[in-house]
């Protein structure tokens, strides 16, 4: 039986009012809606406040290195495609330290759901700019304001024709939970970039700031229309569209490996007859 309670109830290390609490709740709801038993789920995370999420859920977890959640998740999914693999980490972890892996995961189209807690700032290290921080945003590390333009993960993923691209908002739990369900159901790489406030270090992009801007994509948006999706992906200002922005049906990465057609790797014993034949080819 899959239940909300079955996913546990833990004391967290997060600040009161942090968007992480709502994202955790949305994820739990999504796991229950998808009827996934905890032992069938693997959450891989990196380092940062968001990356602590799997510690507050009763699931399998691999809390690895900063920026390296996606490669670890890719390896785990390839080793055992029966696992439902979710990556959960922040904007710094996924788009900064792990930027190359983000691009590679999109290209591979590995069946992993990537949930990015995107609060446009570094929380754990106390308030430096992240890859998604707005130009001109002042921090102790960037006292003259951030000189670089922000990274737009939704636009990059859509431009690269990622399998599934969505944006959510921690202030709309039911909507976010629904997005996570859809992302998990997508057979390929799925990105959910989640707007969330950082109550301690981002005094610009506050809950009210997001609440005012994050609005569902228009009902006539067709997420299979890539050109239309690119326009939506670049919409950022007084209105920030949330919802499914783009998806396609490219085959998932793991379907390309003949070894996996025979089931998870661990269930396949070494064929010593074949190995002896391989050795013979060296004679």
């Amino acid at each position: 039986m899959v239940s909300f309670e079955g996913y546990g109830n833990y004391e967290t290390a997060w600040c009161p009012g942090c968007g992480n609490h709502a994202i955790l709740e949305a994820l739990k709801k999504a796991l229950v809606t998808a009827e996934l038993l905890p032992y069938r789920v693997l959450i891989v995370s990196g380092i940062g406040q968001a990356a602590k999420s799997p510690h507050y859920l009763n699931v399998n977890f691999f809390n690895g290195l900063h920026g390296r959640a996606l490669p670890a998740a890719t390896g785990a999914k390839l080793a055992n495609p029966d696992l439902n693999v979710i990556v959960e980490s922040g904007d710094g972890c996924n788009y900064g330290e792990g930027g190359n892996h983000f691009l590679a995961a999109i290209r591979r189209n590995i069946d992993v759901t990537l949930l990015v807690h995107d609060n446009q700032v570094y929380g754990l290290t106390k308030g430096q700019a992240s890859p998604t921080t707005a130009e001109g945003f002042v921090t102790k590390a960037q006292p003259a304001g951030v000189p670089s333009i922000p990274f737009n993960p939704v636009a990059v993923a859509t431009a690269m024709q990622a399998g599934f691209v969505a944006r959510g908002f921690s202030g709309n739990v039911d909507h976010l939970s629904d997005l996570i369900v859809k992302a998990m159901a997508h057979p390929g790489f799925a990105l959910v970039d989640i707007m969330q406030p950082c109550v301690s270090f981002n005094k610009v992009n506050t809950f009210a700031w997001y609440k005012q801007r994050c609005q569902p994509v228009s009902e006539d948006h067709d997420p299979t229309d890539w050109e239309q999706a690119m326009k939506v992906a670049f919409t950022w200002g007084d209105r920030i569209p949330i919802g499914v922005i783009y998806h396609n049906q490219r085959p998932a990465f793991e379907t390309h490996f003949s070894a996996l057609k025979r089931g998870p790797l661990i269930k396949q014993p070494v064929n010593t007859t074949k190995l002896a034949g391989i050795l013979e080819s060296f004679a």
Partner: peptide, 9 residues
């Protein structure tokens, strides 16, 4: 990191 994820799984 991939190899470690695979080994864990």
């Amino acid at each position: 990191n991939m190899a470690l994820g695979a080994s864990y799984a």
